[in-house]
Design a protein around this nucleic acid. Structure first.
Lengths: 352, 352
DNA sequence: CTTTAGCACTCCTCGCTCCCGAGTGCTAAA
DNA sequence: TTTAGCACTCGGGAGCGAGGAGTGCTAAAG
C-alpha cells in the first residue's frame, strides 16, 4: 500500500520543516510550500490520513503535526534527497583531513572530534579491531644490564616500543638470541597461538631467560590486542545543550552520562554497508530510544576498520549529517589507503 | 582587623549550609546550628556586619545570605577543617590507583577521568612537560630498502618509535652511520639545539642522507616536544548538569564549551605548592569567574609533573574535594616514584 | 469522489494579579 | 549587648483570562 505522491510530498515538507524548527507544522504552512496549489483544508485531510497511517503524530488536538519514527524512516529511505555537499563543505572537510596526519594513536579519537565538529552533534569513535592481527617482527635493543627496549612491528606496519626491565638481567648476546627466537617462532601468529608456543617453551628455556621472554610476549600481546582497538571515544557532548529537546538538564544529563559511561554498548556497527541510520526506537539501547544515530565506517589499512557515529535528536538533519559523515569517512579511507598510515608522507618544510 | 570568633562561626555555618543546599541561609536556621545559644535577632545583626564587610551577600532584601567569594576564601584559608578521608574513601582511591598501571600514554587522561569520578565534578588533566627534555639515545632498525624504524628513548626513559620511509632509500650501513651520528651529536640537547645542529650538517651531508636525517630529527622533536605534554584532557563535564546552578542549559553549555575548546588557557598551575584553590573571580578566565577550581599536581618521575584540576560551582565542597584530590595526587606521585613509570612491574600471572 | 470555504472548538502560551511565607531591618525594652 | 516584637519586602506559585494557532467537521462546489 503505497502513499500517493502528494502524501509523500506533504510528509517531506512536514519533516523538513520540523527538522529545522523543532516545532509542530500546521496545514497552512504546508500549503504555502507545496508545488501544487491546494488549500489548507485539503492538506488537513491528508494529514489526518498520514496520522492514521502512523507517519505523523499530534502532540495534542489542536497543534500541528510532527513526524513519527516511522515517518522519519520513510523519509530517510525514500524521500530524502542525496544532499550534495557544497564546495565549501567539501573543502572544509578536506582541510580537516589534511591537518590530522598524525600517528595512528590519536587518529581515532581525532576522527571522533572532527565528526562532532562537522555536524554539531555529539559523536563517538572507535576502531573495530582486526581479530587476527599478528606481529611482523621483533627487535630488542640493549640499554643496560638490567633493561632493554622491545620494539614490536605489527603486520599492518604499526610500530610500538617499550622499555622492559628484566630482573634477572640480560646481556647483549642473550638478547640477540631472544630476538632471533621471537622472530622465528612468534611472528605471524595470533595471540592465543603466541601464548601456546610460549607454554611449549617454558620447559625448554632456562628460567631467567624465560621470564624475560614472557615479559616481551606479554607486551607484544598487549600491542596486537590493541590499545586503540576496543576503546570508544566520545566527544562533542556539549553540542546537545544547544538543542531545544535537551534544554531540560535531566534529559541532557541522561544522554551524556550514557554516552560517556556506557561506551561499550554504544550502538550498532553497520552490517555490510558502510553507513547506517538508526531512528529513535530502532535503537536497541534504552537510553537512545528518542535519539537517532548515524554511523559510518572507514577502512584503516587492509584489516581494520574505524567507526564514527553521530548521536542527535530524532529531528536530526539526516540529509546533511549523512552526506558529511559519509564524505568524511570516505576521506579517511582514502587517507589510510593512499599510503602507510604511520607515515606523514613527504614533507618539505622543516619547521621548529 | 579580625573577625570575632562568633562571626567566624556564623560564616562557617552559612557556607556549609549553602554548600549542601545551594539555597540562601536564614538567621533562624543559623541560630539552631550554633554552639552558643543566641537568638536569631543577634544573628541578624552579625549577618548585617558580615555583609558590610563583604563576606556574605544578599540576593535580595528579604532572602537569606549566601557566601561571597571573599567569604569562601576566608573559609578555605582558615575555617575549613582538614577533612579526614574515611577509610572507605581512601580504599576506593587506592583501588582506583591500582587499576591504572598502564603505559604513560593513557595515564594522564585516566587520571583526569578518575579525578572527575572521585569528586563528581568535571575535571581536566595535563602533564606540564619538562621544558628541556632531551633524547637519550637513538636506534634505527632497517626494515627494507625504503624504510626503517626509528626508536627514540628520552632522558626520562620513555621510548617511542615509528616507521619512517625514506624516499631515497637507505641501506644498513648508511643507517648504522646515521645512528652513530645521531647518538653522537643529537643526544642530550634540546629541541632548538637539535635543529641548530641539523642546519650545520646540511651542507656537510649528502642530500639524500640529509633528508632521512632530518625526517628522523623531526620525529625526535615531536617526541620530546611531547605528545602528551601540552595536551589537556577534559572529562566528566556531564557532572555539572546535576548541579542546580547549571540547570540553565545555556550556562552549562558555556562552561562545557569552554572546557573542551579552550583547553589551552585552562587555569592555573599551582605555584610552588602542590595544591591550589581558586574561587570565582580569582580565576583569570572570564568563563570561569563564577566557578571555582581546585588543582593539584603530582610528580611523574623526576622531571615532569602532572596536573589535575576540578571545576565546580563556587559553592563547591572544598573540604572534600581538596582532601580527595590531594590524597589522589599523592597516590599518583607515589605510584610514579616507586618504580619506572613505564614498567608495569613484576607481574607473576600470565594471562592471555 | 475530491476539493474548498467556513466556522466552532480545543488547547497551549503568555501575561496579569494576588496571596503566602520566609526573612529582613528597625525599634524599644531587658 | 542581647532580645522580642513588628512592619515591610520580595520571590514564587496559583489562578484566571485573553489571544492565537491549528484542528475537525460540514456543506457546497467542481
Amino acid at each position: 500500500m503505497d502513499l500517493t505522491p502528494r502524501k509523500k510530498e506533504i510528509l517531506k515538507v512536514v519533516i523538513e520543516n520540523y527538522i529545522s524548527t523543532a516545532e509542530p507544522v500546521g496545514s497552512k504552512a504546508i500549503a504555502s510550500q507545496l508545488t501544487s496549489k491546494v488549500s489548507s483544508a485539503t492538506i488537513r485531510n491528508e494529514l489526518a490520513d498520514l496520522v492514521e497511517m502512523g507517519y505523523l503524530e499530534q502532540p495534542h488536538t489542536s497543534a500541528g503535526r510532527i513526524p513519527s519514527p516511522k515517518g522519519y524512516r520513510l523519509y530517510v529511505n525514500e524521500l530524502m534527497e542525496q544532499r550534495a555537499l557544497s564546495l565549501q563543505e567539501t573543502e572544509e572537510i578536506n582541510r580537516a583531513l589534511q591537518m590530522k596526519m598524525q600517528e595512528l594513536d590519536g587518529v581515532i579519537s581525532k576522527a571522533g572530534q572532527m565528526a562532532a565538529a562537522l555536524v554539531n552533534y555529539p559523536a563517538y569513535a572507535m576502531a573495530s579491531g582486526t581479530p587476527g592481527l599478528t606481529v611482523q617482527r621483533f627487535d630488542l635493543l640493549p640499554v643496560d644490564q638490567g633493561s632493554f627496549i622491545a620494539v614490536v612491528m605489527t603486520q599492518d606496519s604499526r610500530v610500538k616500543s617499550r622499555l622492559i626491565r628484566s630482573e634477572t638481567g640480560v646481556d647483549a648476546d642473550q638478547l640477540a638470541a631472544l630476538a632471533a627466537l621471537l622472530n622465528a617462532q612468534f611472528t605471524g601468529v595470533d595471540e592465543t597461538e603466541m601464548n601456546h608456543r610460549l607454554m611449549d617453551l617454558s620447559s625448554k628455556t632456562p628460567g631467567p631467560l624465560f621470564m624475560t621472554l614472557s615479559q616481551t610476549i606479554e607486551y607484544a600481546c598487549s600491542v596486537i590486542e590493541g590499545g586503540e582497538k576496543n576503546k570508544v571515544y566520545t566527544t562533542g557532548a556539549n553540542n546537545i545543550l544547544k538543542l531545544p529537546e535537551f534544554r531540560d538538564a535531566d534529559k541532557a544529563h541522561e544522554l551524556m552520562s550514557f554516552m560517556v559511561d556506557n561506551t561499550e554498548n554504544l550502538p550498532v556497527p553497520p552490517a555490510g554497508t558502510n553507513m547506517e541510520i538508526l531512528i529513535g526506537p530502532e535503537n536497541v539501547n534504552e537510553a537512545l530510544r528518542d535519539t537517532s544515530v548515524v554511523v559510518a565506517s572507514y577502512d584503516i589499512g587492509d584489516n581494520m576498520r574505524g567507526l564514527i557515529g553521530v548521536v542527535g535528536p530524532t529531528r536530526m538533519d539526516y540529509a546533511t549529517v549523512a552526506a558529511r559523515l559519509s564524505y568524511f569517512a570516505e576521506g579517511l579511507t582514502k587517507m589510510f589507503g593512499k599510503q602507510d598510515p604511520l607515515l606523514p608522507g613527504p614533507k618539505e618544510e622543516q619547521k621548529t
